[in-house]
Write a protein that binds this DNA or RNA. Structure first.
Lengths: 242, 242
DNA sequence: CGGGTGTTTGAATGGCGTCAAAGATTGTGG
DNA sequence: CCACAATCTTTGACGCCATTCAAACACCCG
C-alpha cells in the first residue's frame, strides 16, 4: 500500500480497499477501480461541495480531506449530520436518498474525483461488477448505521459519552482506510465542528475534552487524537455498534 | 375511502393510497395492492415485532396501531429511533438496510400483514410494477429524511421546539393516511414514549406540553392531539422539512 | 508584526434530570 | 357495579449539566 499512496489522489484506491475488505474482488473489478481518473476537483475548507453544472460532479468520492453533511437551521445553528472521510462516497442528490440531498461542506481542504461514469458502468453490468455493487450497498448500509448511532448519541448520552463514542467511531473508520498509526489518527476538526456534530457548545466541548485528557483516556495534539485507554474509552462510550 | 375502511385490516389499502398519491398506479398495480391478504398478525402493546420462524414475517406492513424502532442502551435507557404508523413498511433485516436491523416494538396494539410475497412479486416484474417500485423507494427516502430531521431535533433544538416539530411531523404523516379530522389526530403515545423519542425525561415532557397548552398551540385529550395554532406551532418548530 | 481563527478559562444563568409523592385514568376481577 | 391494581399524569424541590457571556491566551499565516 505504501507504493500506491502516490496514486491515492487520482484513483479510487481507498474505496477499492474498503470494498475488497468486505468482498474479494475479481480482477476485472480491480481493474475498473484502479483505473486512473481525471475528474478531480479541489475544495477549500469551508466551501460547499456542490454540483455546479448539474453534470453529476456532486456524485463523487472523497480522496483527501474531511467534509460533513450539514443542516443550517433558520436561527443559524449548524448541525453536522455526518462526517465524510477519504474513501467515502457522495451520492447523486436526484437518486432517492435523503442523505445525498443534504448540503455538504468541506471541513478541511478536500479533493474529490467524480464517480458518475464509474457508477453507470457498475450499474450497467450487474454480472461483471456484482461484488462492487454489493459492496457499495454495504457502504450505504454503514452510513445508515452511523446515522442511527448518532441519534442514540444525541438523544441518550451526556457530553462525555457523546465525545467518547464519536471519537471511537472516527477511530474505527480511520483504521479501515489505513489512517491509524499506533493508536492515533488525524482529526482535522475544530472544537466548534465537534460541537456542531454533537449538539454541544464549543465551551463545553473544550471542558469535556480536558476531562477526558485528565482521565488519561485520550490525548490531543497537532490535529491528531491518540487513544490512551481504549478499554476505558469504550466502556465510557457504550454505543450500539461499538 | 369510507367503504374501503372495512378492508383496511386485511389489505394494503393505506399503502396503496400512499403510493397512489405520489404516482398514478396502473390497474394491474391496484389489483395487486388491493388483493386481500391472509398473513395477518397481532401484537400487544409492548411486545416486540420480530420474525419468529425466520420465514419473513418481519417483512410486513402495519395496518393498525403504532410501533417504534428502538435501541436499548447498556444502561437500560430506551431511545426511540423512529415511529411507525399504519401504512408504514417494515423491511427485511437481511436486506442491507440498517433501519430494518433494529428492534421494533409495538407501542399500542398493532396488527400487521406480511409483505414478503408482495415484495418478491414487485421485484420479480420490474416493468409491470414499476410505479409501485419507485413509490416504495420514495417511501424509503421519506424514512431517511425523518431520520435526518430527528438528528436536527435532538442535536440543535431545545425541548419545546423538539416537541413542536415532532407533533407536526406526526400530524403530516397522519394526514397522508387519512387519520386527521379537523385539525386533530390520534396519538397513542405516553409521555414516557415521547421522552424516549425526543431524549427528554418524562417530567420535562409533561412540563413543556403544559406550556404549549398554556400558549394555546395544542390541546391533548383522550389520546388525541389538536393543533390549535398551526402557524404558531410551525414557527416554533422551524425544522428542515417542515 | 498584526489580524484572524481556534483554544482556554471564569462566572453566572437556566434548562433539564432526578427524586419523591400525590392525583388521575384505565382496566381488571370479584 | 364497585374495588383494586396498574399505569400514566402532574406537581414540587433540588441539583447538576450545559449554555451563554466575556475576556484572555495561543497559534498560524500573510
Amino acid at each position: 500500500m505504501q507504493g500506491n499512496l502516490r496514486n491515492a489522489f487520482c484513483s479510487m484506491e481507498l474505496l477499492a480497499h474498503r470494498l475488497a475488505s468486505m468482498n474479494a474482488l475479481s480482477a476485472v473489478e480491480w481493474e475498473l477501480l484502479l483505473e486512473p481518473r481525471h475528474s478531480s476537483r479541489a475544495y477549500s475548507a469551508g466551501s460547499e461541495i456542490r454540483d455546479p453544472g448539474g453534470d453529476g460532479m456532486r456524485q463523487s468520492l472523497i480522496v483527501s480531506g474531511w467534509a460533513s453533511r450539514e443542516h443550517v437551521s433558520h436561527s443559524g445553528r449548524r448541525q453536522l449530520l455526518s462526517i465524510l472521510l477519504p474513501g467515502d462516497l457522495i451520492g447523486d442528490p436526484a437518486e432517492g436518498h435523503a442523505l445525498d440531498a443534504v448540503e455538504i461542506v468541506a471541513l478541511s481542504g478536500v479533493r474529490t474525483i467524480g464517480t458518475a461514469g464509474f457508477m453507470s458502468i457498475v450499474n450497467g453490468d450487474a454480472d461483471r461488477y456484482s461484488r462492487i455493487a454489493s459492496g457499495l450497498s454495504a457502504l450505504r448500509c454503514g452510513d445508515e448505521t452511523r446515522l442511527l448511532d448518532h441519534i442514540v448519541r444525541l438523544g441518550s448520552q451526556p457530553a462525555p459519552q457523546r465525545i467518547a463514542s464519536f471519537v471511537l467511531e472516527l477511530f474505527a473508520r480511520c483504521r479501515v482506510i489505513g489512517f491509524v498509526t499506533g493508536s492515533s489518527f488525524p482529526m482535522p476538526l475544530t472544537q466548534e465542528m465537534l460541537g456542531g456534530a454533537l449538539g454541544l457548545s464549543v465551551v463545553h466541548v473544550n471542558r469535556v475534552i480536558h476531562r477526558l485528557k485528565a482521565d488519561r483516556l485520550i490525548s490531543l495534539q497537532g490535529g491528531r487524537v491518540t487513544i490512551d485507554d481504549a478499554i476505558g474509552l469504550a466502556s465510557l462510550a457504550e454505543l450500539m455498534s461499538g
